[in-house]
Design a binder for these strands. Sequence first.
DNA 1: TTAAATCATACTATTTTAGTAGGAATTGAA
DNA 2: TTCAATTCCTACTAAAATAGTATGATTTAA
Lengths: 134, 134
Amino acid sequence: MKISSKGRYAVEIMVELAKSGQELVSVASLSARQNIPPKYLEQIINKLVKANKVASVRGAGGGYRLTKKPKDYSIAEILLVTGDMPDLAPCLSSDATCPKKAECNSIGCWETLNALIYNYLSKLTLQNLVDKSY
Amino acid sequence: MKISSKGRYAVEIMVELAKSGQELVSVASLSARQNIPPKYLEQIINKLVKANKVASVRGAGGGYRLTKKPKDYSIAEILLVTGDMPDLAPCLSSDATCPKKAECNSIGCWETLNALIYNYLSKLTLQNLVDKSY
DNA sequence: TTAAATCATACTATTTTAGTAGGAATTGAA
DNA sequence: TTCAATTCCTACTAAAATAGTATGATTTAA
């Protein structure tokens, strides 16, 4: 079990934008800076645009920039956009109805761990990553 | 990102054995109790046997039982045996040498989260799960 | 008009996960 | 001694998830 490349890339991209302030940054530039395949990066950043985490400017000279201050983004909200927020116990979320929930010996453990992870990632901000204060 | 079935099954099996005390429990019985495909369960429990987490008795009337007291097993050690211990930043473990480690914006975050998870799972014991005290 | 850029969507190769399958070896009991 | 219950061993496979690749349309500054 590891963090997906997509999720990690999303965070890397956001920190790169945070470092760039209000300057517009292109896919090509981000791709070069972080060694992420450009077309893959495009897909990822597009999700962030649609979720209003990032503003985009089309056409020549265009690019991307943040819509908020780095301190106002949590890492959790970024990972949620790309669908890469850890969820150790999908058996209880949403639709899933485990037929043996009553006999389950471990569910509480995953719930607690989930909460721990969520708590950490929802308090950690982009600014923290810029500052390398984890 | 979720916990694998294999890892979860391993924990479920261990708790089931913990609940059974010194009694020998067969694959068939564990399979029925926890709704785990028997041949899959066999593979998983075999790893636990090889790692000396579980004792086995072959032949008719055989089965499995724990080698230690439930309070002396951490959940982490069980997940390590089956290879399902979360490792969010495989890019730093062992062999992996990321060519862009210097430019990495997120590594510290994954390291910290890893430590958090490890800390929780290495302190949580089988006995805790039996007692449902997470 | 052109070049630089984002937007949209479909496709694909690789890896991981979650099993399935078959049989050999061991042992208690009839 | 034979049989049935059981673990041990290893190979195989189907399905899903991951990590991209590919193509082209649209937008816009110069």
